[in-house]
Design a protein around this nucleic acid. Structure first.
Lengths: 193, 193
DNA sequence: TGTACATCAGTGAACGCGCGTTCACTGATGTAC
DNA sequence: TGTACATCAGTGAACGCGCGTTCACTGATGTAC
């Protein structure tokens, strides 16, 4: 075996991590093979030693985006203080999340793109949405399961919608207003029935 | 003057209308000059008798998307029965709206695209968001202006988020569930304080 | 331990296709007389 | 009213660039003896 397998795996991960960030920053179409390889300190040709096609990278990078997002949430849940619904809402609807889509939730960053994407990526998206709904529902304390589920859907819709709007708008005051208003009202709602 | 100006204006409008629909169906990048011209029954070359560039078509088509959307809402408001917040919510969060982005609201269809687009298109988007917030706030009956504004932001976030999610997901049951749940809860909220 | 060989991650040029844009041309319509 | 000319919307081929993909090659690492 030529170069060590560990090196290759590391390179592979580096490429995926870069693609995962750029995917969320620039959309499913906004990610170029040559660009990603250059940012990884490599040249184009080597790409196909790691992936069958650009599409394969997209699929892996999307999975990685979902994975790192869950890991971030998980880290908050275990690290010291417990994760609460208020914290999740505060995080999701923060200026920091709005300004750094590359590190944030892929669903709000790519919702429109995913709607027009291949069955494979839409499937990935569907699973992630279900996962996030379960996560939110699990953080709610009052009500039966059906009520929690319904409120989780409602809350997640607000989060995705408000972040999408806050990012699309080019008036900072309006953008801030959208996030702050959505966060305040959603927190109030979430702690009630 | 060669061909009549009326003919040219009509052709121009036809091109814009087609682009406007395809924009919402396929995104800001998903619209090709040759494709649009072919659908209009013309050939590529003639395009530049109508537009300086592809970008100029995008700007016009986006404006047209916003315009037709407002016109649709306006038609409901004047046509027979008055427009209510419940009807607006019901329309926005309907399966029909989800399944026909080409005829629907450009903001939910293009939110992610707009966030990464040129200053010109983001400016258009910002104005449309403000307009829609005013529209929703104007339909609310209880509370002072600040409360109406806040509730309008919240309601519009839910609408954009739920439609985005419902379109992204490839499980019809889940998609229907998201729309129905968001609609029910939002209607209940909107008629209260 | 040392040497020859095999493997394969990575290189960088080249290919091919899609697509926005350009351009010389056509022919129908409007204007001038 | 009729005829010659000018205009210009629309044609369709060609150009050029970006980008995904391919390919012959390199050289460092691992294996065999």
């Amino acid at each position: 075996m030529g170069h060590s397998q560990a090196d290759k795996a590391q390179t592979h991960e580096r490429i995926v991590a870069i693609a995962s960030r750029r995917l969320r920053e620039r959309g499913l179409e906004g990610i170029g093979v040559a660009d990603v390889m250059e940012e990884a300190g490599l040249t184009v040709g080597g790409f196909y030693k790691h992936f069958d096609s650009r599409e394969a990278l997209v699929v892996e990078a999307l999975a990685a985006s979902f994975g790192t997002w869950q890991a971030q949430i998980g880290a908050q849940a275990t690290g010291g203080e417990k994760l609460t619904i208020e914290k999740l809402i505060g995080n999701y609807l923060s200026n920091d999340h709005r300004d750094n889509p590359g590190k944030g939730c892929a669903i709000s960053a790519l919702a429109a793109d995913l709607a027009r994407s291949s069955p494979t990526t839409r499937k990935q998206c569907t699973e992630q949405v279900q996962h996030n709904l379960d996560l939110v529902a699990g953080l709610l304390e009052i009500g039966d399961d059906a009520s929690k589920r319904a409120r989780a859907i409602f809350a997640f819709s607000v989060m995705v919608g408000a972040v999408s709007l806050a990012r699309a708008v080019c008036d900072k005051a309006l953008s801030d207003e959208i996030l702050a208003t959505a966060a305040t009202r959603l927190k109030a709602m979430a702690t009630e029935g």
